[in-house]
Nucleic acid binder design. Structure first.
Lengths: 343, 343
DNA sequence: GTGAAAGCGCTAACAT
DNA sequence: ATGTTAGCGCTTTCAC
């Protein structure tokens, strides 16, 4: 099993009777190199099956061309789209990608960040875990001026740019839509309110009520981890309420679906008895009966934007002083779960 | 912004008045090194905030400690579990992970494999894309004796080990279950029959029919890409059949769910008119109404097994002559979609 | 426009 | 048990 020896720039140099330096320059787009030698170098490299040794290059340049991505979970249509978007931009930019999932646990997120740091990624793209409190695991990156970009689940930080949607407005719109469909007593099921996406949606929810002169009832907020079980529990809680709600806005589609299923089991008619809205436009929305009204936003584009922003930070040598928050489009998708045709 | 200089083994050596070699050995578990110096080295490394430079090490050792994973898609509960299992084992083994999704396209899978190859991964874990025909994009790995392990969507190859479940038996069992529930005319909706998982399930399906003396009707096989739209299309096709089936076995849960939804829209009662079974036990199975009978198998364990097998190949210096096929457990989960209580 | 040479940080063969 | 040394493949400064 003689594994064909790996070709180096020295091999190419020998064949071409030039110096390794010339080969190195020829392979890049070095200005001071003649068109003809560049051609020869590139052709010979291809012919000999040369592939550049990233480690040597990384060692020499002290940069790895590798970007780390930390997401709460992988089995999400939205995040999978985000990653596809990130992959597209970074591949085109010649970067490698390391992906890891925090599984919604701060502890695992910390471990992931540490691994990324030790792998010496050039930059980091992060959507925070459900229960992440502190940002101290990103301190090493800040100290080394390694850019960290947050997307979707973000946090304000002077050193970090963020890519988000307008969660406030989205929730405001969807709540208003429920009110327009004759909901006067709306329950809001949401996640950890110290996470921006949930706190903003909560704000939007309250504002919409207030603008329509509906008083906000603290008991109508159910905070849980938005899992399937949590959806079921929320349903039971709703059933036990003395003043049964006529609308429910859940901050996550899966949880909404599981909540709907449970309520239906108990004879609740949706949307007749209770109108429903979710968030994220996961495929489940069009499978659950009735189909789920919710907010759609494009993961792929968010991923592209995050990656582009990161590359922007990376290519300018200066400090990342120009941190920014980029707000992407979202759209209200109205489906049967919230439409009451009381003519 | 003075980025604290990176600590190297030379810095530690200087501080400790020993040689860099000693530090290097101290950091590993080199046998010929005194307990006390080892202690001192490790303590000093921690104190100075040393982190090993993988590139230097990779360059020197000509191995990267990085494993590549290529999966058809990330937004799958099953595959996300697999990846979590892989991650656990590889992290513990000190390996890094590069994950990429082929998005069910051979073309992208080829690109992914190339990226992995150029990143010089030490090994590769692959679940094949829907339409992958050739294995030629893995040739470079075979030639360099870089182990490639397939899982779930596998292919026979003398150089590759595989981790699978017994798809034949699983399909056999689930089909028999449908027959036991008074299905005599079963449609099988499946994917590309050159993919092992689908061909084996098809075999099991046919065998079960045959063993129960039910004749197999070629028209009852619907081959599609198992997407949501495909599920809908399959439903329409089923509705148009002259001899309406009384059972449907779909090789994928999402597709099954979408098919069920469409049939219900057309007034079909499930399981009364048509009993249903899916495959994979995705969370959707317990959200769809009625809940979906199917085959459960543990992604996390499959991932662990794949990673362990890979590490096994990696740690033995010899050739990978001992390729193997590992078959994991599966379980039939019976839910409402297939149970007919005709007393 | 091209070449010579040093050095990125680590490891291992070979000394001692 | 520890030190010396060379070299992994690449880039780049400084020559010419």
């Amino acid at each position: 099993m003689s594994q064909a020896k790996e070709i180096t720039i020295y091999d190419i140099a020998d064949k071409l009777k030039v110096s390794p330096a010339t080969v190195s320059r020829g392979l890049k787009d070095h200005p001071a190199i003649s068109k003809s030698t560049k051609r020869k170098v590139i052709d010979m490299a291809k012919e000999m099956g040369y592939r550049s040794n990233n480690f040597a290059s990384s060692l020499r340049l002290n940069k790895t061309n590798t970007i780390g991505v930390i997401v709460p979970k992988l089995n999400s249509s939205f995040l999978s789209d985000v990653i596809a978007g990130i992959e597209k931009i970074l591949n085109d930019g010649g970067y490698n990608l390391i992906i890891s999932q925090s599984l919604e646990s701060e502890k695992k997120e910390i471990a992931n960040a540490e691994t990324m740091f030790n792998s010496r990624v050039d930059g980091l793209l992060v959507s925070l875990a459900y229960d992440t409190q502190s940002l101290s695991h990103f301190e090493p990156f800040f100290q080394k001026n390694i850019p960290v970009i947050f997307f979707d689940r973000v946090v304000e930080h002077e050193k970090c740019s963020s890519i988000v949607i307008d969660n406030f407005k989205a929730a405001y719109d969807i709540t208003t839509h429920l009110i327009d469909n004759k909901c006067n007593n709306i329950v809001h099921v949401t996640g950890n309110l110290s996470r921006n996406v949930y706190s903003e949606r909560f704000r939007g929810f309250k504002q919409a009520l207030s603008d329509r002169n509906i008083s906000f009832i603290p008991e109508n907020i159910i905070v849980n981890n938005l899992s399937l079980e949590a959806g079921k529990d929320a349903a039971l809680k709703i059933l036990s309420m003395s003043n049964c709600p006529d609308g429910v806005f859940v901050a996550n589609d899966y949880c909404a679906a599981s909540c709907i299923v449970e309520l239906k089991k108990h004879g609740i008619k949706i949307p007749h008895d209770i109108a429903f809205a979710g968030f994220n436009n996961d495929p489940i929305s069009s499978l659950i009966e009735p189909n789920l009204t919710n907010i759609d936003y494009k993961g792929f584009e968010m991923g592209e934007m995050a990656a582009k922003t990161l590359i922007g930070h990376l290519s300018q040598t200066q400090d990342i002083k120009d941190t920014q928050t980029i707000v992407m489009r979202h759209e209200l998708i109205i489906r049967e779960s919230s439409v009451r045709n009381t003519i």
